[in-house]
Computed example of a mutant assay.
Amino acid sequence: MPQSKFTLDTCNVITLPKISDPRGNLTFIEGNNHIPFDIKRVYYLYDVPGGAERGGHAHKDLYQLIIAMSGSFDVLLDDGYHKKRVHLSRSYNGLYVCPMIWRELDNFSSGSVCMVLASNCYDENDYYRDYDEYLAARGVTK
């Protein structure tokens, strides 16, 4: 059993509000309303070369919402025991990712933009960048 309370079941796709209008649609996100955390940082990935992968880490305490603002990509989630792949392609859907979940992003379509809302400011000490170290922290033995 995982030492962390966070498992793949904790991560899910959140459908965000969508206001449809013939002039163009609008989606908005309010921290602690549509997502279960305050938003302290926003960043985005773009111009990702074909075949490239991003992510490849886990966070100790950070919560995130990952959104395909344009185009599409896949997010591979891994809690040390199970893995699941989530395809994101709609800007009104966001993937909620809790702490202690390893994530990898791949299969980026041409022109895709990945926006991430984060619960904390950047802190290098919050990262697990080595998969074996991450597994040890989760109490997973190979």
Rank of each mutant, 00 (worst) to 15 (best):
W102S: 12
D132K: 10
W102C: 10
L117C: 01
K84Q: 07
Y131D: 11
A118W: 00
K83E: 14
Y96R: 02
K84G: 04
H87G: 08
V86F: 07
L117R: 01
L95K: 03
D79E: 08
D123I: 01
L117P: 01
K84S: 02
S110W: 03
P99F: 00
R90F: 11
W102N: 10
A136W: 05
S112A: 09
M115C: 14
C121T: 11
M115G: 12
Y81A: 12
D126L: 01
H87W: 06
H87L: 10
K83Y: 05
S110M: 13
S109V: 13
Y122L: 01
G80P: 11
N120H: 09
F108H: 11
R129V: 10
H82Q: 15
S112V: 06
D78R: 04
L105E: 14
L88V: 09
V86D: 05
L95E: 06
A136Y: 06
H82I: 09
N107F: 12
V86T: 10
K84W: 03
D106N: 11
Y127N: 05
C114K: 03
L105R: 08
Y127A: 03
G80M: 13
R103P: 07
S109T: 15
C98R: 03
S112T: 09
R85V: 15
V86Y: 00
S119P: 02
S91E: 14
